[in-house]
Amino acid sequence: MQSFLLRRFGVALLTVWVTTIAVALLTRLVPGDPIEIMFAQSAGATREQMLAMQARLGLDRNVVAQYFLYLGNLLQGDFGRTIQGGQPVLPLIMQRLPNTLWLASTALVIASIAGVTLGFFAAYKKGTWVEHVLMTSTVMGISIPPFWLGLILLMVFGMQLGWFPVAGAGWHALVLPAVTLAATNAAIIGRLTRSSMLEVFEQEFMRTAWSKGLPKTTVLSRHALRAGLVPVVSAMGVQFAYMMGGAIVVEYIFSWNGMGTLAVDAILRRDYPLIQGFILVFSVVVVCISLLLDVIYAALDPRIRQGGDS
């Protein structure tokens, strides 16, 4: 377990470190003069302001000095200020972060429940029409563009039926975006569960359980499902990362006031300090939560607990 966790922890640290480098140098990769691009947005920008910003971002120095300047600022919690409006970047992002986490985790719960149910029954009814229908529906689920699904749900349940608000905050506004975000991943989890369950059904201990004459539900839930869910649960960290990524698009459709909406606007406005802050916060959050999920998984899985590496 320790070696597994150490490795995961190492990767997490490495990722965060690489992100800081990538983010710090992002402004260097922009074609044209980033300072010109930033400041052409504010009609009254003076030469002094532009030079000050250049110095602030370390663009007047070499790459290494720029990186350490940026890192130093980060360590002091200074993520810079937005070009448009001069707002401090970090609080701006942190204000939106809970909304995104809320959306992603709700969607993860929905996707897991739906996906596991679906995959379990598909495996249980192997070879029947049930499996075919379920598996075809997962291919559909993977194929529908989330942004289109979101619009359709909005049109039907928001506008036509009026069951859910078309935008806003709070629980009832969360349902449609969470379902939209969950759809693709429910399909993926469903496929994962199915193949894992199929393997479990073939295994020796299952035959033993059946032959002992235990009730059907006991065999299925106690033995089969528990074993079959191991690979599914181990993939939770990855799933969560994809939920966070998917949230960017889904938020935009539903005007959900999260990091994704902020990021898309920032990219369209070329507000580089905000883009940098977003990428950094996003990957740190994803890395930390994936790590957390892995730790929980490792604590639960006896094979890893006993020192094996998965």
Binding site: V11, A12, L14, T15, V18, T19, A22, L26, L29, V30, P31, V238, A241, Y242, M244, G245, G246, I248, V249, A263, A266, I267, L268, R270, Y272, I275, I279, F282, S283, V286, V287, S290
Partner: peptide, 25 residues
Amino acid sequence: MRMLDVLFSFTEILIALACVAILGP
């Protein structure tokens, strides 16, 4: 292998967004 680990933690959408942010829409 380490680079892969790192890139996979980023998720594809973030990489794509970062590229668009640099290159322009």
